[in-house]
């Protein structure tokens, strides 16, 4: 039965963030990447997890994106069950949160951090078998995190898509995965400078080398 409803070519992006103060940044990452994909003629979807209750400060919350060449048929499947890309707006999410649950083989993890991938990898206890690479970028040094409730609960974000740190994180995703053209992303995000610098500076580390080293 499961095979019957497979959507080959559907890519899922899950962004983990801290409740309230990073809601916007998490949402911006998925919105920026999916809107960029839409510019390239893809079918896209972006939304936030409803059950995570994002009105509690620091609680781990998720924002999701879907990108496909075909019309998305699983549009009301409300959680990304098998993400291809996981991104963290904040480094401590590697600790005590099952961020890699359900990832597809070859998945990529993108983390906003000053620390090296080697160090962060030690904290990830579950799900690394399918993980291909870890991407680190110090997005906070490139742009501030914008704290706003504008855009929460499905409303329009009047503060500007990719105005803050999310632009940098989105750029790191694009660098590591090539899920969209970087030029397309630049057309969407407001903070183009942060995106450009992040695209330049993001470090991509092969998980195999981490496993061997560990």
């Amino acid at each position: 039965m499961t095979n019957l409803f497979e959507e080959p070519g559907l890519k899922q992006i899950t962004v983990w963030a801290r409740g309230v103060y990073e809601n916007k940044e998490a949402r911006d990452v998925v919105v920026a990447v999916t809107e960029a994909a839409a510019l390239e003629g893809k079918f896209v979807q972006a939304w936030e997890n409803y059950v995570d209750l994002p009105d509690r400060i620091y609680v781990p919350v998720r924002a999701y994106g879907k990108i496909s060449d075909q019309e998305i048929e699983s549009k009301y499947v409300y959680e990304n069950e098998t993400p291809d890309i996981v991104a963290l707006t904040e480094e401590t999410l590697v600790k005590g949160v099952d961020i890699l649950a359900g990832i597809k083989p070859g998945a990529v993890l993108v983390i906003n951090t000053k620390r090296p991938a080697e160090y962060l990898f030690k904290f990830i206890k579950k799900g690394t078998e399918n993980l291909a690479s870890i991407v680190t970028v110090d997005a906070n040094s490139l742009a501030k995190s914008i704290i706003t409730l504008s855009g929460a609960e499905g409303a329009t974000d009047a503060s500007g898509i990719g105005k803050g740190m999310g632009a940098a994180l989105a750029a790191a995703i694009v660098k590591a995965t090539g899920i969209v053209q970087f030029e397309s992303l630049l057309k969407i995000v407001e903070n183009k400078n942060a995106a450009k610098k992040a695209f330049e500076k993001a470090q991509v580390v092969d998980v195999k080398t981490l496993v061997n080293a560990g």
Partner: peptide, 16 residues
């Protein structure tokens, strides 16, 4: 009702 701890709501992973 939890008396000392609430195992259903472990919040240590909220901490940065």
């Amino acid at each position: 009702s939890p008396k000392t701890e609430n195992e259903g709501m472990i919040t240590g992973n909220w901490r940065t």
